[in-house]
Amino acid sequence: MNQLAFIILGFCLLVYILIKVKNKQFSERESLMWIFAGAIVLVFAVFPGLLDFIARFLGVYYQPTALFLLTFFAIILILLRKEQQINGLEERVKELAQQNALIMNKIEKFIK
């Protein structure tokens, strides 16, 4: 039953992302990462033995801890990427604001 719940969860996540992309609310490029995350949830749900294997490989004796650890790292990576994107956007917004001030000055001079 647990396995079935996880399969449904992974499937729903994938469908949700695909609908968002289809409705142009989410760019294809950005959605790829989340499609990948949804696919991993599905793979773990279909093959629970895989999580056992990874937990043993990492030297973690309690399976869910391995899952939390992987999820934690994935979220940190996503956060770093988002921070990087926000910084890039901030720079672009600053440039736009500065250009706006320069253009407004030209317009005012032109009107006078």
């Binding site: 600053k94 604001a97 500065q98 001030a101 320069l102 407004m104 000055n105």
Partner: peptide, 20 residues
């Protein structure tokens, strides 16, 4: 004068002046 549409802080304002 130049008027920035929102607050960029001291360095952002200075940089606008350099561009001018």
């Amino acid at each position: 004068f130049l008027s920035l549409p929102f607050n960029l802080g001291y360095s952002g304002a200075l940089q606008t002046g350099f561009k001018y």
